[in-house]
Design a binder for these strands. Structure first.
Lengths: 371, 371
DNA sequence: CTGAAAGCGCTAACAC
DNA sequence: GTGTTAGCGCTTTCAG
């Protein structure tokens, strides 16, 4: 009878908020030491079957649940990875998040998920919070803003994480420079865009509208670059009026497309910066009575589910989203293990992209459209 | 010079994996005690401006990041909530998850997210893991399986969580009974389904196909129940051939619909158990040359984005998904605070649903369809 | 195979 | 205002 507190009943929760059972309680009830209890839990050390049985029984009857904080404090990894996206609802991020979550789970880890809603400050704050929790890795997903002080802050966080043996993973965004310890998992934005525009050109298009993609975002910048390169390579002159950057949103795609149609801007194909924008554009086209692909070709980027839901089904670029998520945690977790390796802390994995040809592209009509 | 270890350089991370700075280091460098450092961090106690400045400078130069585990162990809440869904990609869960994440963030907490992929065992394991991390609340989302031992296990976990002052939140799934300490946030599955079928009947439909929804899932069960009640109320006899439960998947909707069409089963409207199933059915209908809504009416459930992407746009039932997520954490977090209240640990909040009428329903054609 | 005891890093009384 | 100190619950040598 040497139990410390004796507030009310045991653990059969009546009103909640009691003191939880600890290893000490379990040890006492089982008549062993706390070391033995620990050994039973972690099954990392031989324990007599009978003893084990008694301990397990004690744990059960006390409703004992190990305290991960205490365990982490005692030197065991917290078995946590963090992922920061701008928006969970967006399939682009959701698929990557799924990859991260699955890989984490497969590695017996739990996943902290945060949404920045596009706010870089929030992003920095989340990294900090995850570091406080000693996440084994922090995965940052999606295009980043091109701001110097922001990048400097990010670099600082990356170094702090690294100094603690953790890792910042840049997933689908550019490196912070060779002197900043991060790992990266990228996909070929520029190349995919190049291929897509080239596909359009091959079909005979010359006047291609590039629609959407925030100018400040690296992802958008690279896609536009690929588009331009394709144009250039084919000797097609760039027309500023045909470059209409903007939000990565359905609303933007719809609105801007409707305006352009109304203004009578001349083009025979639309390269939407992503599938969401394409969905908006498709609606505007439909409402304006412009048929896809007969009167107008339309392509997107990402190959998220809407691409197949649209009619006609959208030609787009497929990105190995879930695989990127998986690799992000894999790379981060295996990268730091090997001590004898050199210190290529800034290794970047690049995954391929490829066009998925569906039904939204056709050769341009002869002569003027709507003619 | 009384620093303990002196392994290589300071914290300017060169190769990663060094010992991290602790309060002791900060205190030493700033020439104060650890208590003061703590006070500076938590800003919950007066500290001289000059002192504060010195401490903050020390933290900065050491790249100090507080250890959340130690803090949690010392008695402060871990500021974490957990959410368990079957699949992050599914918009239904994604929207709820977004609500949970936002409410958590607003309350200065981080969010652990896990996906069960429909496996109840995994679900139980995740609850345990979150409990180990001392999550302030664990939100369980979506329909649950009707299995006795599973429910018993769930109840045990709920009690353990409750005993520790935490809370299990049942979001969109039935209570485990009044003796199990959980809180619930529900929406009216039965009522929404009732309204939907009633809407169809009002339009003149009599032979309504009910498609999809795993028979074992509470959500599906309730929707079917609402459908049946509407039929009954209007004195329409139930035809077993018109009840085709199945997965909550697009593939099921497509396949089953195609089969039924091929078999020539007679009906004038389809009540898909959710929008995803409706999307699959829509495709089958389209491929079979059956026009919606002229030849066939179609309705779904959930009002996720696809509903507006389909052509014609889908009439469906709107559920306040994000709000449910928010309420889930709010209810869990405020519930246990008040000590003087009675112990209505099993309080359930019920949110309303309502039909969103769009373009996929019309009166049935006179006489036989396709006639 | 099992026990005793020293921390892990932080917070919160309690003194000064 | 600031310092001292006693834990929080667990793991892990080091001894039996």
């Amino acid at each position: 009878m040497s139990r410390q507190s004796s507030t009310a009943s045991g653990a059969s929760g009546t009103a909640g908020g009691q003191r939880r059972a600890t290893v000490v309680d379990v040890a006492a009830l089982a008549g062993v030491s706390t070391a033995t209890v620990s050994r039973v839990m972690n099954r990392n050390y031989p324990v007599a079957a009978a003893t084990r049985e008694r301990v397990e029984e004690a744990m059960r009857s006390l409703g004992y649940v190990v305290n991960a904080h205490a365990r982490a404090l005692a030197g065991v990894s917290g078995r946590t990875v963090g992922i920061i996206v701008s928006e969970l609802i967006d399939p682009f991020y959701a698929y990557i998040a799924r990859g991260v979550e699955r890989e984490a789970t497969d590695g017996d880890r739990l996943c902290l998920v945060c949404c920045t809603q596009g706010d870089p400050q929030r992003e920095l704050a989340f990294i900090e919070l995850m570091h406080e929790r000693r996440a084994d890795a922090v995965v940052l997903v999606g295009g980043s803003v091109e701001d110097r002080t922001y990048k400097a802050e990010l670099a600082r966080r990356a170094r702090e994480l690294d100094a603690g043996g953790s890792k910042l993973v840049l997933c689908g965004r550019p490196s912070l420079g060779d002197d900043v310890p991060t790992v990266g998992v990228e996909y070929d934005n520029e190349g995919g865009a190049f291929a897509l525009t080239d596909h359009l050109i091959t079909q005979g298009h010359r006047r291609i509208l590039y629609l959407g993609g925030p100018p400040g975002l690296s992802t958008a910048r690279d896609r536009l670059a690929g588009h331009r390169r394709a144009l250039e390579l084919r000797g097609i002159e760039r027309d500023p009026a045909l470059e209409q950057p903007g939000a990565f949103s359905r609303a933007f795609g719809y609105r801007r497309m409707a305006e352009l149609l109304r203004e009578g801007t001349d083009f025979t194909a639309v390269f939407a910066a992503n599938d969401i924008v394409a969905a908006g554009a498709a609606q505007a086209l439909e409402e304006a009575g412009v048929r896809v692909p007969q009167d107008m070709s339309l392509v997107g980027y990402d190959d998220i589910p809407v691409a197949q839901e649209l009619r006609p089904r959208l030609t787009t670029v497929r990105i190995p989203l879930e695989e990127m998520g998986r690799q992000a945690v894999r790379v981060a977790l295996t990268g730091g293990d090997e001590d004898d390796w050199r210190a290529p802390t800034t290794g970047t994995l690049r995954l391929g992209t490829h066009i998925v040809v569906r039904d939204s592209v056709a050769p341009p009509r002869v002569g003027r459209r709507q003619g």
